[in-house]
Write a protein that binds this DNA or RNA. Structure first.
Length: 652
DNA sequence: TTAGGGTTAG
């Protein structure tokens, strides 16, 4: 076939309106049969076929034509001497959601360098891929090529380079490029503003925005506004967020769904649910993101019934709204509903992801649902080669909270890359199981490894000291967290210390701490002090603590009961009776105690004197039997055993 | 051809 006769075919293979992938594959098969793909002469045809295939379908949804294009490109007897087919493939690969496909950009660029010269289209695609893959070294080498080939004045290349630096290197590097560049457009500003927001430095982003507005060379568009409105949400600055929303409306910025979703998210984060709702209602064509954002909004305000209603009204759902609703249930401590939602999710054939698993494990921890937690563990094991640090941490926490500390330790040791959160979960687990010495050793090991403890790590360490009565060590940690680790002491740290000092009988020191702490003590702090007073028979201080507790929550029956018990223990019958009369007089009712147990994956709840369970007779028979056995065992037990460690745990 | 939104552990 002579070159002129190829023209009609070349015209068909347009990248703007390519034929369907099926037709292109058919055409390729015909050309192969006709022997037109083996010689050097039809090279433009092969190149155009690659380009058309790479443009034919959206590679995020159907990567097959792209894979075919790559195979075709690799099979050509003589590689193309033009960058175009490579660019087409790089463009499509850089769009893919599958990381494995994006990675293929790197060897493809090497092939390009062997046979052709990169052009102004090559670098934006390639740098985008490097940014997505976090390929810092490779990207830096590419930037070297940009300079040596003289593309540093191309605004598309410079913007892509800025984006790469913002993602993989530092904002300082990206900013240096921006400041030193003679070619700037709207995308340059947006790249920088978006970079600052992504890096969590919204103030810099806003400074750039006001400079951009003042500069006047470019006009902010919806992408700019997405950046700055997200920035105001990060700052939790409602006034600023409203001002930016006002700017959008007064300056005719296109109110795209994406922008409106961000505006909603800003109002939610800044605590204005009503405005978020009104923005949501104003969106014409709501996307799954709009619906999900509204679910998150209601959930954050604890309005789970409204969140559920939005979820039920959604016309279509992906994994995000399922996870958002499940997160809401978990955060509102409604673990049972989170588990129920997971069953619905399975029935709806929605593939759960890591976040679903994280939520499930948190729900299991709340409910003490060990069997379900183990099922989740098996599920994770089946689907993964290695355990991610986030899931691993959650598993450690779940096993600890569901009572199996040995298993928690085994999982901890299996996590290939542990972070400070993983160590904290392990330390807290050990502390709560009474293994104070081991918890402290784990803390020391964590520090040796160079990990930075935070406020929650210290809650774990202090509660370890508290459980073991290690007053001196506890005081040292309490002081160290400020002097060495520059952490702020929160309410929980003070309640731990009051508990530690009080239990050990240092009531004066505990009271002094309560009186001098920098925030108003909460019920947990006063409760710890009250408990210590009752334990050590300090009625005067106990009364003071109890009064504070009543002040903080007059409707809580628990404290009246405990106060009456304290008087009774101190043989102060009259005062005990007075408290009970006061309870009746004030109309305080004792809230019935509730406990739950998981059996064959079903969580059963029991309330005091509740007889509604179908197997209640058998349950009470069993309970009676257990009580008898405990009494019998208690009479037989050697008290020295109580002092022994329940199980021996060592660090490797 | 470059920039941009929703779920995430202790």
């Amino acid at each position: 076939m002579s070159p002129p006769s190829l023209c009609p075919l070349l015209a068909i293979l347009s990248t703007r309106h390519p034929p369907s992938a099926g037709r292109l594959l058919q055409l390729h098969a015909h050309l192969l049969t006709a022997g037109l793909m083996s010689s050097r002469s039809p090279f433009p045809l092969a190149s155009r076929l690659v380009e058309a295939l790479a443009h034919s379908d959206d590679p995020r949804h159907s990567p097959r034509p792209l894979l075919h294009a790559l195979a075709l490109l690799a099979s050509l007897p003589t590689p193309p001497d033009s960058a175009s087919p490579y660019n087409a493939a790089l463009r499509a690969l850089s769009l893919c959601t599958d990381r494995g496909l994006v990675t293929r950009c790197l060897p493809l660029y090497c092939s390009l360098l062997r046979s052709a010269r990169p052009d102004h289209l090559t670098f934006p695609f390639l740098l985008k891929a490097c940014a997505r893959l976090q390929e810092r070294n490779y990207g830096n080498a590419v930037l070297g090529n940009v300079l040596s080939l003289g593309f540093h004045a191309d605004v598309f290349v410079v913007n892509a380079a800025m984006h790469f630096l913002a993602v993989c290197s530092s904002m300082a590097e990206a900013r240096k490029l921006f400041d030193g560049s003679h070619v700037r457009d709207l995308v340059s500003w947006n790249t920088l503003i978006g970079g600052y927001v992504r890096r969590g430095v919204p103030r810099e982003a806003l400074e750039m925005f006001w400079r951009m507005v003042g500069d006047g060379a470019v006009t902010p568009d919806e992408v700019t506004m997405i950046g700055v409105v997200s920035g105001s949400a990060q700052l939790r600055d409602l006034e600023l967020g409203r001002r930016l929303h006002g700017y959008v409306e007064s300056h005719g910025v296109r109110c795209t769904v994406r922008l409106m979703n961000v505006v909603m998210d800003m109002y939610i984060k800044c605590g204005d649910l009503e405005r978020a709702k009104s923005v949501f209602e104003g969106i014409d064509k709501k996307t799954i993101v709009s619906w999900t954002t509204m679910i998150v909004g209601y959930a954050q305000f604890g309005l789970m019934d409204d969140a559920r209603k939005v979820f039920d009204e959604m016309p279509e759902r992906d994994v995000f709204p399922w996870n958002a609703l499940m997160t809401g249930y978990v955060q509102c401590k409604r673990g049972k509903e989170a588990l129920r939602l997971f069953h619905d999710m399975q029935e709806a054939m929605v593939e759960p992801d890591d976040i679903t698993m994280v939520n499930l494990l948190s729900a299991c921890s709340q409910l003490g649902a060990l069997e379900m937690g183990m099922w989740v563990h098996h599920y994770i094991d089946r689907r993964r080669v290695s355990l991610s640090v986030m899931l691993g941490t959650n598993l450690v926490d779940m096993y600890s909270k569901c009572g199996n500390i040995e298993k928690a330790i085994r999982v901890f040791k299996e996590i290939p890359e542990k972070n400070a959160l993983t160590w904290t979960a392990m330390i807290s687990g050990l502390a709560n199981h009474g293994h104070a010495d081991v918890a402290i050793k784990y803390f020391q090991r964590m520090i040796e490894l160079g990990l930075q403890p935070d406020e929650i790590t210290f809650i774990g360490v202090l509660s370890a000291c508290c459980h073991a009565g290690l007053v001196k060590e506890g005081q040292e940690f309490f002081s160290l967290m400020v002097s060495k680790y520059h952490l702020e002491r929160k309410m929980k740290h003070y309640s731990c210390m009051v508990d530690l000092l009080g239990r050990a009988g240092y009531l004066d020191e505990a009271e002094h701490l309560v009186n001098t702490m920098p925030m108003e003590p909460d019920a947990v702090v006063w409760g710890a002090l009250f408990f210590a007073c009752r334990m050590h028979g300090n009625i005067t201080l106990g009364e003071k603590a109890a009064m504070k507790l009543v002040e903080l929550d007059p409707g809580d029956s628990g404290i009246y009961v405990l106060l009456a018990n304290m008087y009774a223990e101190a043989n102060m019958r009259k005062k005990a009776d007075k408290v009970r009369v006061m309870m009746r007089h004030l109309g305080v009712e004792k809230v019935p105690g509730c406990s739950c147990i998981e059996l064959n994956g079903v969580v059963h709840e029991f309330i005091v004197k509740d007889k509604s369970h179908t197997d209640i007779a058998a349950i009470y028979d069993c309970l009676h039997e257990i009580t008898l056995q405990i009494e019998h065992t208690a009479n037989m037990i050697d008290t020295s055993m109580l002092l022994a460690e329940p199980c021996k745990i060592v660090i490797d």
